[in-house]
Design a protein around this nucleic acid. Structure first.
Length: 426
RNA sequence: GUGGGCGUAGCUCAGUUGGUCAGAGCGCCAGGUUGUGGCCCUGGAGGUCGUGGGUUCAAGUCCCAUCGCUCACCCCA
């Protein structure tokens, strides 16, 4: 209603909502740490070139979704649309290949893509992700998938579906690409206009097209699985075997291609049921060629990213309520000017003892103060009025059961924990 | 970029074929209880009816434009 609102595709996360985010972030950090991953924080913007080279010119992200601008120094800058390229850049820039390999990293934060917003899609959205750099072991592919699944389970999500595919490597993917083009050559007229341009630029992505016409032409399309070189085939089989050995179910989807060019070998998505169009809560895979593409040494790596808004939506659609703890341990209510000073002392003493405590500042009636405390979901109200002050005492009122008792001020100031904790455990 | 739906108090919404239509519930503030929350009662604050044009004696109510929100397509988190 007032003049300025948050920009399209962005939103404020207000108290009441932000606690859910903190809860989710805590789980992400704890699980990642439990797998030996350490947090990395990269800039929110990078040189545009990083994403152009890393993600690939022919991708939707680079073609039409980046927030790119020229800074005052004439540099082309882009708000990060994803987290992997920046992490790889940091790994190379700080020569992390010099530390013990593989390097396990995770990140958490906002990403930016210029798209039309809709349910589960925003222009500023939040992802967390992990990247394991310096390992070509299929066990590492499995590990990153496990990290994702563990986090989702800790959050309480159920019935998640894993889709797996292999994109091959520089040895075998070109052969598949050619096989695909051979198959499509006589069918170009039947493809949508977008796919006709993809034919030359990035034919593999035609597999991913949802147009009916294209799907029809693709009915007998060769699958990459038939073209994988022995190395890629063996790698993919091991990833599957490791997952199976842990009792993890998944399905193979030969059409799973992913929108970024840098993937090699394993790719996967995690799908949440019942979420409508935007049902991919996480996606990732192996990207053995990205570091070289960024101008660095060859570095095999694998990782994934998960969308936090979508996870919250998935939790909501599954009826999972995230725990919302009571915010304040105590509210100090004061009646009369002289009580204000003592109330201030009491509030400070409570906080020094580790209690979360707020106090009355508006000079309202006791009734109004209790009403306010009630709405703040406070466990206890400490009441200090002229009468109590005269007796060097205060009242502690339990807002959950309505019970209250008068206690000496001295005790409240020196050792409040017994008074409040005793009440809490009741 | 394409297409559909919607824009009336903080929130959820009523407002019949244009003529007391500027309202209700909840929320908020205050009082009833001059020192005690949740229930109840009373009162109060709060809206250029998204914005700008147009039609009309008269427009939340019709028309156009515009902005915003929302859902879907493409694609992705």
């Amino acid at each position: 209603m007032s003049g300025i609102s948050a920009p399209r595709g962005t939103k404020d996360i207000l108290p009441g909502e932000v606690e859910k985010w903190q809860y989710m972030e805590d789980i992400v950090r704890r699980v990642c740490a439990g797998y030996g991953y350490r947090e990395i924080r990269t800039p929110l913007f990078e040189h545009t070139e990083l994403f152009q080279r890393g993600i690939g010119e022919a991708t939707d992200i680079v073609e039409k979704e980046m927030y790119t601008f020229t800074d005052r120094g004439g540099r082309s800058i882009t708000l990060r649309p994803e987290g992997t390229a920046p992490v790889v850049r940091a790994y190379l820039e700080h020569k992390l290949y010099g530390s013990a390999q593989p390097v396990r990293l995770f990140y958490l934060g906002p990403m930016f893509r210029y798209e039309r917003p809709q349910a589960g899609r925003y222009r500023q959205f939040h992802q967390f992700g992990v990247e394991a750099l310096g390992s070509q072991d299929p066990l590492m592919d499995t590990e990153t998938i496990l990290v994702a699944l563990t986090i989702f389970e800790e959050l309480g999500l159920e019935n998640l579906h894993i889709e797996l595919n292999s994109m091959g490597c520089p040895q075998c993917r070109p052969r598949y690409r050619e096989g695909l083009k051979d198959y499509l050559k006589g069918r170009l007229d039947g493809l949508c206009s977008v796919c006709q341009t993809r034919y030359e630029l990035n034919p593999v992505r035609i597999l991913d097209c949802k147009e009916d016409a294209c799907r029809k032409e693709l009915e007998g399309v060769p699958e990459i699985g038939d073209y994988l070189c022995p190395e890629c085939r063996g790698h993919f089989e091991l990833v599957q075997r490791y997952l199976t050995s842990l009792g993890r179910s998944f399905s193979l989807n030969p059409r799973l291609v992913r929108g970024l060019d840098y993937y090699t070998k394993t790719v996967f998505e995690v799908i949440a049921p019942g979420m409508g169009a935007q049902n991919a809560v996480a996606g990732g895979g192996r990207y053995d060629g990205l570091a070289e593409e960024c101008g660095g040494r060859e570095t095999p790596a694998v990782g994934f990213a998960a969308g936090m808004e979508r996870l919250l939506l998935a939790l909501e659609s599954q009826g999972k309520e995230l725990p919302l703890p009571r915010e304040l341990d105590a509210f100090v209510a004061v009646v009369g000017d002289s009580a204000r000073t003592m109330g201030l002392k009491v509030a400070v003493a409570l906080r020094q003892r580790g209690f979360k405590a707020a106090m009355e500042t508006e000079g309202r009636s006791l009734r109004a103060q209790l009403k306010a405390a009630d709405r703040l979901l406070v466990k206890h109200v400490v009441i200090i009025g002229e009468e109590e002050l005269g007796r060097s005492a205060a009242i502690i009122r339990n807002m959950e059961d309505g019970g209250q008792q008068e206690v000496p001020l001295e005790q409240l100031l020196e050792a409040p924990e017994r008074l409040l904790l005793q009440k809490i455990s009741d």
